[in-house]
Computed example of a mutant assay.
Amino acid sequence: MSILVAISDFIKRRLIQPMLNLLRQGMTPRSLAATVATGTVVGIIPAIGITTFLGTAIAARFRLNIAATVLVSYLVQPLQLVLAIPFIRLGISMFGLGELRLTLAEMQVMFKTDWLDALNNLWLANLAGIAAWAMLAIPSGFILYFVLVPILKQVLPKPKLIVTPVSDISATDVSPTL
C-alpha cells in the first residue's frame, strides 16, 4: 500500500501542484488554452528530442507562458511515442514512399544488408512523418484551442475587481495640467 501512496504523492508533487501553480498565476482562459494547445501540438511531433526547443521558441514568439508550454509538451510525450508510427506511415503514403518498410523484421534485414542505406531510408521516413505532423499541427491546434477556451472559462476562477470608493479620492489626486 505504501507504493500507491508514494506514487500518489509523486503525481501530486510533480504534476498536479505545478499545474495548479500555473493556474494561480492569473492566466486568462484564452492564454491558457493557447498554451495547452501549443504544448500539446508540439509535444506529439514525431522527432524525439526537439520538443523543448520548439515549444520554447513558439511560446516566446507568441508571448505564451514558456514553462507551461514545455510542461504540457512533456505531459503529452507518451502520445508522441504512440503517434510516431502513424505519422510516419501517413507521411510515407502522402509522399509516395511505398518502398519503405517499417516492420521490425524488414528493418533488421535492411540493417544487415546495408546499414547506411537503412539509416537513410529511416531518416527519410521520419522526415515524411514530420511533414505529415506539420500539415496537421496547425488545424488540430486551432481545434484544440477553440475546444479548450469555453471549458477553461467555466473552470478557472473569475478575476476579482477591486473597486475604490469615490469618497477615497481627494481633490489633490485630480489636478489639471497646464
Rank of each mutant, 00 (worst) to 15 (best):
L71T: 01
A33Q: 12
L116D: 09
G49I: 08
P18S: 09
N21A: 11
Y74E: 12
D9L: 08
L64A: 00
D117S: 15
V82G: 03
L119D: 04
L20A: 09
T103L: 08
W115V: 02
F10L: 11
I85K: 04
T52E: 07
Q17C: 03
S93K: 13
T51C: 03
V82K: 09
N65F: 01
A118G: 11
I92F: 01
A67T: 00
I16Y: 14
I11Y: 14
R61S: 12
T103W: 05
R24P: 05
N121T: 05
T69N: 01
A60G: 02
A33L: 08
F95K: 11
V42H: 07
R30P: 00
I16W: 13
A67C: 02
A6P: 05
R14L: 13
Q77C: 12
F62I: 12
L90V: 02
T38R: 11
V109G: 03
T38E: 12
G96H: 00
I50L: 13
R14T: 15
V36G: 07
A60W: 00
L100F: 12
Q17F: 07
L116Y: 08
F53A: 15
A67G: 05
L79T: 13
F87D: 01
I58L: 08
Y74N: 15
T28L: 03
I66S: 01
L71R: 03
Y74P: 01
I92V: 08
I45R: 02
I45K: 01
V36I: 15
L83D: 13
R101V: 09
S31T: 04
A68H: 00
F62A: 03
P46E: 07
A118T: 06
M107Y: 09
Q77Y: 15
A84V: 10
A68W: 00
A105W: 10
F87C: 12
P78D: 02
T52C: 09
M107H: 02
I48V: 15
M94A: 15
A84T: 12
E99F: 07
A33D: 10
T113G: 06
R63Q: 14
I16R: 06
T40M: 04
L81G: 04
T56W: 07
A33P: 10
I16G: 10
A6S: 14
Q25F: 04
I92R: 05
G43N: 14
F62D: 03
T35C: 07
L75E: 11
G49W: 04
R89V: 13
L23K: 11
F95T: 13
A84L: 11
G98L: 13
L54Q: 05
